[in-house]
Structure formats: structure tokens, C-alpha cells
Nucleic acid binder design. Structure first.
Lengths: 196, 196, 196, 196
DNA sequence: TCCTAACCGAGACGGTACGTCGCGTCTTTAA
DNA sequence: TTAAAGACGCGACGTACCGTCTCGGTTAGGA
């Protein structure tokens, strides 16, 4: 195994410190030096195990959102048989997360790192974006099977339509994130806007 | 009058330098010092007129995209009477812009600044996002009037659905930006995914 | 005449401001910008008439110490016939001046400029140091004529011996400037230290 | 122990660079930035260990004048039994030092800093001025013991009389520094100027 | 159980860029 | 023509972090 004598306590302290500091001081003032100091760790310890500040954040967020198991795959989106209701419920939960500064601040920090660092972007895609997208696709495929959704819909595009606007709105702070907004997104995606 | 004896030549040199450098060295290495050096200007001259690196970029991009007039409002999206075709044409143009590093690099740099700076975000919204959104809304309203689009569609949401996914895909580098992708977005938004 | 349409009021305001600021903020923070602002003058006005910050200070101190006449030559050191008493009186007056921050601070500022600027040093020598030294030499020559002082004394050296130590002590802050100290200097210079 | 893991090589490089630059560019253009660049060191390394540019110069001069030992106390002024000859020899050596730009330029730079910075002045007094003065006083006390010098002479004043005029002449560039001048100073101080 | 390597905290180091201050020059407008 | 005002290019300031590099001290494996 690669990491043999790594101190688990220190690893946790660093992830915690990163999350806390991102929430407290914001992305712009988040520094490796600061994380190390808050964690009571040496800078070298961070550089030994993570290639960048963003990688620390990614690990921290993954650990935080998935809990101790670290597994995403064994989760499923709700499936009550009513796609519209299920999507609205999921998006409402997302809105709640994005409105919680404890989670939102580190996510914004991570996003900033991702924008500037294609390697981190790929890592993020592999470890968070893709598995989560797979969840969403599974739910949509079931809706196709159930005859709720047209068989020739491009489900990848549908995922982007459902979650993309919310992310953009949040990132650019283009407006308040409300449940009314996500409900309308779901309705519009389902029904389209064409007048028949 | 506000700024009276400001040097127009220097202002232009700074905006040009900012755009060039963002394209050449990328966001992470874009520095006020570098912009000043490239422009043959003093750092103080930049700090005198712009509150931040991002504000310079915003001005630079505005000047670049709107040309010498600086006006956005007197532009209109194409209206051939076929909404689907018009939207696809516009989004294809957007794809082309986002695939051009000369424009894409500074836009990415600006986005990074916006994420971290709410003041800049508001400025961006006022001066670029809102006027451009208004263009889009005008075109959609005409489609409503023409009976192409359902009268009870929330046009603000529709704008987000049409342009949001593209922006997200570009920002997070989640996949290639192709005309096929935007065509499908348009089709899906227009038709919806519900099976009738 | 060289200076034709020069504004006397502005000249005075600048000299006053220089003296005041040197006293208030100390040499290190004394700036042309500050003097101009305090005097309500433009920076260019200072650069038009003085070659350096130090030259302003020199003019300011000359104007202050000599009063409106601006003449030094028609002054004389006291001559009561008792050289020792006269020298002690003069040096006590000097001590008093050096202990007065209103005069001492600008003088220290001027000294700092002189150390770094040989041109200013020459100007200072011509306009202040040399005339004052001449006063001192005249008094000593009278003491020689009166038979109080040995005819083969090098009076230039004597002037340095009498005033040099005080200046060094003041510049380097090597000890308190007291009348007891200058009295002893006078006694020692007059009597020598050799044991007969 | 205070400073533990400080790099001795860097320390030396900084002191050397400071001395060289003071000699080459003069005080006015001596900058921390320049010293760091010349020494191949970061600015922060200088600020970490010295409170000011002047403190670097003081250390550099102390290291240079005392050699690797760093001790002043175990030196003695010459004592041939002839005070006049001994003093003249010492002052002639001082004249030579002050006429050597390699030493004189940094000393002038240090003096300029001392004028403006009382803290540095105190440091200078403690570490250079006072020990050297003690040397001088020891030689004079021996002359008193030998009966060469009157027992009621104030030896502190005598030190000032012997070395003060030279320093003033040098600092203000009031005249050439010659051996003839210092010889006359010694003679005058020893004999006094009173006509008996 | 001891030895010894890897890991740890701490933090100095050479750098880069920050945002600020003041320099001396310049240009504009008003008197 | 002089003056107030202040923008300009420039250079240095002192600070914050970067990522790399020692330094002991500690701590867990394999001998």
C-alpha cells in the first residue's frame, strides 16, 4: 500500500481545519499556511499527501458529505413513481445545502480551485460529479422504463438542464435560491415550452 | 464630472494587456504587476481606477465584446420566426466563443474573480449579465407573442435552462462544448421530456 | 532678476509648512507631497524653486533664524573682555536651541539631507556654516589681540573644538546636552589637559 | 537559545551585500530590496532578523571592523608612554579609515540611519560607541596615572574634544581630513589655548 | 524489545505578488 | 507665466503565502 505510516488523526485535523477555515475566512484568504496552523500540523505534512489546496478541500468535502463510509454508489435517489415530485424533492434538498454557509463556503472555495486547475477538475469529476450524475441518470432511466419520460430524450442533457441552472445561479449569485425556482425548472424541463 | 484628466491611452493599454495576459498565462498567474508591466503603466494607475484585478477584466471584456460604442442594448438576437433555429444559431455562436482561448481565458479568469468577490459579481450582473439576459428575454417574448411558446412559461427560467447548462459545462470542463450539445439543449427545452 | 513673478505668499507658506512638518512628523516621514499639501501649494511649485527637499529646509531654517532681514554678518558674538564667560554664554544659548524641538527637529532633518547630498552640504556651508564660523573667528581673534589667547593657536581648530563635540553629541544623541557639559568643554579647551 | 536554525551563510551574504552596496550606490539608493537581491536572499529573511536597514548596516560594520572574533574589548590603544604621539597615531589611523570609501560610505549610511532612528542610535551606542570610548578612556586614565595629564580633567569631555571635531568635519564635509588637522587637534587639546 | 526508518511539528529559506507611499515629471484649467 | 491640482511611470516599502528545505522528536514495524 502507498500510505503506510500516515497519521489518521493529523489527516482528520487537516480536513476539519480546511472546512472550518473555508467557512470562516472565505476562499480568498484560505491558505495552506492557515490550514496547517489551525490543524496544528506542519506545512510539509499537507504537501506530502495532497498536491494542492484544492485537493485538500475536495477530500474534506467528500469526507463530510459521504460520512465515514466514503461510499456514494450505494445511495439512490427517491423513486415514488412520480418523477416530477421526486426531482423537486431532490432539488429542494440541494437548495437547502447551497443555502447553508457551512457547506456552501467550502464548496465555493473548491469550485474556484477547480476553475483554475484542470487536474483537480478531472479529479472532482471522477470522484464526485460522475458518481452523482450516475445516480441521477439511474432515476431518469427508471422513469423512461416506466413510460414517464420519452424514450428518445438525451438523459445527459436532461441532467444538465435540471441541475445546471441551479449551479450557475448559485456560483454567480444571480438570484436567490428558492424551492419555487427549482420547482419551475422541473416543470419546464418536463413539459417543455412549445405551444401545441 | 467624475474622472477628468484620466489618460485614455493608458486605460486602453491596461485593458489590452489584461486581456492578452489572461489569455497567455492563465488566471492563476495573472497579476496586477504583470498587467502594469505589459501595459507600460504603473501599478498605482491601475489601483487608482479599478478596485481589483477582476474589475479590470470586466472592463476589458466589456470593451472587447461591445466594441468602441460600449452599448449592448441596441443589439438584438436574430428573429427569423423560427425560434428553434434562432436559438441554435445563437448558442452555436456562444460555443464558438467559449472554444476560442482568446476570449475564453479572460472569461474564465473573470469568473474566478466573480466567485470570490460579491461586489464584482453585482457589477458583472448589472453591466453584462442583465442587459444580455434582457436581449434573450425579448426574443422569447416575441416567440410567445407569435404563439410559438406557451404563454405561461417562466421566461427567466427558460433563459437559465438554455444558457445555464452550457456555462456549467464550460466552467467545470465537464465535457466538450459542441453544437450537437447545444442543439439538443434547445430541442429538449422546447419539447420537454414528458411522454404524452 | 531670475525670479520674477514668484508668489511671495506661497513661498512663505511652503517654508512654514516645511518647518512645522519637520517638527511634527520627524525627518523620516517628511515628504514634498506633505509639505505641498500643508502649504496648499502644488508640488510643481516646490520643484520649480528648490532643487530638493533639503534646500527647502535650509531656506526655511535660514529665514527662521535670521528673521526678516536675512542677514547674518551684522551680528557679533558678545565681547565682555572675558573670553571664557563669553564662550560659555554662547554655548549655553546653543544648548537651549538644540533642546528646543521646534528648532531641533528641522535641524536634524536638514542634517540628514546634508549627509546624503554634497551639493546641499556646500550650499549649507556657504550660507550658514561659513558666516557663523566667521563670527566665532572674529571673537577669537579679538581674544588673541587682547592677549587672552596664545598667538600661535590655530583658531579654525579651536572653533571645531568648541562647537564640534556639542554637535556630535546632539546628532548621535550620545548624552544629554547640558550647560555643565559646555562649560567644561570651554574650560578644557582654554586650559588644555597637560600637567605642567 | 535564541535563534536556532538560522542560516549562517545567508547572514554573511546579507552583511557583505549591505557593505558592498553602501559603498557602490551610496546611502540614498541603498535599499533592502537591493541588499536581498545582491545577497541572493529573500527580503523576508532580512526582515526576519533585522528591524531596519540601519540595523543590518550596524551588524555589517561591526562584523567587518572586529573581524571574526566580534570582540572589541580585548583591544588596547597604543601606549608608548608618550600620550601626544599615541593619540596622533590613533587619529591618523582614523583619518585613513574615513578617507577610504569602502569603509566611509557604509559608515555614512549608518550615520544617516542613526540620525533618524533613536532605537538604532541606542543600539549603536551600546555596541560600538561605548566600548570604543572605554578604550580611549583607559588610555587617558593611564596618562593621568603617569602624571602626563592633569588629574582634574574630565576625561569624557576630553574624548569628545579629540574625536568629535573629526567626526563633525567628516559628516558635514566641512574640510579635508588630514593628518595635519588631527595633529593640531591633539596639540591644542593637550596644551590649551590660554596665554599664560 | 529494541532499532531505525518514515512521519511529524516547526519554521527558515528564496521567491512572487500584494497594495501603499512618495518620488520627480507631466498636463490641464484658472487667475 | 505662474499656480493648484493631481495623474503618470517608477521604485521601494513591509507583509502574506507559496512550495521546498532542513531540523530534532516521536512512533510504529521488522529484526
Amino acid at each position: 500500500m502507498a500510505e503506510r505510516r500516515r497519521s489518521e488523526a493529523t489527516r482528520q485535523a487537516i480536513l476539519d481545519a480546511a472546512l472550518e477555515l473555508a467557512g470562516e475566512v472565505g476562499y480568498a484568504k484560505l491558505s495552506v499556511e492557515g490550514i496547517a496552523a489551525r490543524a496544528g500540523a506542519g506545512k510539509q505534512t499537507i504537501y506530502r499527501w495532497w498536491p494542492s489546496k484544492g485537493a485538500v478541500l475536495l477530500d474534506a468535502l467528500l469526507a463530510y458529505t459521504t460520512g465515514p463510509s466514503g461510499r456514494i454508489d450505494d445511495v439512490e435517489l427517491p423513486d415514488t413513481g412520480d418523477l416530477s415530485a421526486d426531482l423537486k424533492a431532490v432539488l429542494r434538498a440541494t437548495v437547502e445545502e447551497l443555502n447553508d454557509p457551512r457547506l456552501s463556503a467550502p464548496m465555493r472555495a473548491l469550485s474556484t480551485e477547480i476553475l483554475a486547475d484542470p487536474v483537480l477538475a478531472a479529479d472532482y469529476a471522477d470522484r464526485l460529479e460522475t458518481p452523482v450524475r450516475e445516480l441521477k441518470l439511474r432515476r431518469l432511466r427508471r422513469a423512461v422504463d416506466a413510460g414517464e419520460v420519452s424514450a428518445d430524450a438525451d438523459l445527459d442533457v436532461v441532467v444538465d438542464l435540471l441541475w445546471g441552472p441551479l449551479r450557475t445561479r448559485w456560483l454567480y449569485r444571480e438570484g436567490p435560491l428558492t424551492k419555487r425556482y427549482t420547482d419551475r425548472v422541473v416543470d419546464t424541463v418536463l413539459n417543455g415550452i412549445r405551444r401545441w
